[in-house]
């Protein structure tokens, strides 16, 4: 007999989502964007769990999902550090808590 049981990924995801952030980087493409952003994240103890990026014409967008459970600064400070780093290399960096996307886009 095979036991009919499916893991409840939704619950697992929801629990894990409490410490997730979504980082979006938008700007003109150039060399070193990913390196700059990811090193800034590593410096503050953010573990990167997912990255996708796309280049449309000369525009670059990158979306990262990070885990902030071991982050060394609070979320407001992290947002500021990333924005600063973005300014240095000429891209806009936004950081949002994953719960916002869950609230807006999942029923």
């Amino acid at each position: 007999m095979v036991e009919k049981r499916l893991p409840d990924f939704r619950e697992i995801e929801e629990e894990a989502g409490k410490n997730k952030v979504v980082i979006t980087v938008v700007g003109k493409d150039r060399i070193g964007i990913i390196a700059a952003i990811t090193s800034c994240l590593a410096e503050h103890g953010v573990n990167i769990e997912d990255i996708t990026q796309k280049i449309l014409g000369e525009y670059f967008t990158m979306i990262l999902v990070g885990d902030i459970s071991r982050c060394t600064v609070n979320i407001g400070e992290l947002r500021e550090k990333l924005a600063q780093k973005g300014e240095e290399i000429g891209v806009a960096v936004y950081l949002q808590h994953a719960q916002i996307f869950r609230a807006m886009h999942r029923i």
Partner: peptide, 17 residues
């Protein structure tokens, strides 16, 4: 990815613009 690119960009647009 937990969310689709379009969803993330839509939320961002609402907040930033």
């Amino acid at each position: 990815m937990l969310f689709e690119r379009a969803e993330i960009l839509e939320t961002l647009r609402m907040l930033e613009l």
